[in-house]
Design a protein around this nucleic acid. Sequence first.
DNA 1: TCCCGAAGTCAACAGATGTTGGCCTACACT
DNA 2: AGTGTAGGCCAACATCTGTTGACTTCGGGA
Lengths: 187, 187
Amino acid sequence: MRRPAEVTKAAILAAARERFATDGYEKATIRAIAADANIDPSMVMRYFGNKDRLFAAAAEFDLDLPDLNATPRDQVGTALVRHFLTRWQVDDALQILLRTGVTNEAAAERTRVVFAAQLGPLIIHLVGDPGQAQTRAALVASQMLGMALCRYILRFPPAVAMSDDEVIAWLSPTIQNYLTGERPDPH
Amino acid sequence: MRRPAEVTKAAILAAARERFATDGYEKATIRAIAADANIDPSMVMRYFGNKDRLFAAAAEFDLDLPDLNATPRDQVGTALVRHFLTRWQVDDALQILLRTGVTNEAAAERTRVVFAAQLGPLIIHLVGDPGQAQTRAALVASQMLGMALCRYILRFPPAVAMSDDEVIAWLSPTIQNYLTGERPDPH
DNA sequence: TCCCGAAGTCAACAGATGTTGGCCTACACT
DNA sequence: AGTGTAGGCCAACATCTGTTGACTTCGGGA
């Protein structure tokens, strides 16, 4: 069973992503990951050093957000919701960030960085004021992550039962408002 | 150090709630809980049998939702947001449900039951159709849990920086819409 | 053909975890 | 004063965890 190192490394990373996504940080054991990749646990250590560094390697993500400047300003909400929905279903990235970020501080930091670095700038382009933009980004994240949480992690039956189109129809106005709506005054 | 059993039991429960809230299910060890309660780990077993049953005992919650029939229909959103916000800050209930529910299936089930049993009926009172109501409940839960996630668990800086009043001002229209808004048609 | 480095395995370590059972020991009752 | 019981502690178990180091084996270049 001889393979080039890169193939094995990739197999480990793939297995690690799957485990982190479904089990969270602590329950995703190196032994289980190694078993999934059909190698000895010590190989994981050889290639990644330790569990923390394995996670760091497995959780390097690009949310691959769309260019919202290309879409009409009043459809920006729908575009973002639709994008997040497919993003969630297409790979494990968001699932990993959520499942691990809740109980592991390093993972939480990673989640913060990913969102700040990728969702932030996108919204700054849309709104002028950067301070405002950060707040709006947090609001968008709260609704998108919250729906993902209910639908894919906690599996609330009504959330699971909704069709993608229903979700889009309900969430789009919310996201649109968070993005381009007037700032409400707290009284 | 002799105490009536009920006092010890209560001390264990309190310590367990705190640990489950901050560490999640797997990282909250019986030994740590016992140490917090100043007793031997075996006492936990004597009183609760095993870790699963300890969790079940520690996660019996009443969301204590307000009677929305007493508030004007157009302020129902604000009332709910305000309630969840204080609920989150006043005790560990929601924090426990979120932190454990993400990585532990039994805890996820508990979260589903708590929300279905307590948020569901409240909304059925507000909307006629029970099927509709479940969907609306899921939408409300998604936004409330999502904001809690960003603010208290992942600690997104902009979400943490928002004042309670700002959060209320932003989320209320969303929740109001999920509760009493017209059903959008997915096309 | 030989051989050296890289790919892979094996066995074990130290520590942590849930859980068990035996043993004290204080105290309310007779 | 004697005693039974209930609150509490201690030591140990089997298992799992991350991690380490020594060993084997394949395969390409000299």
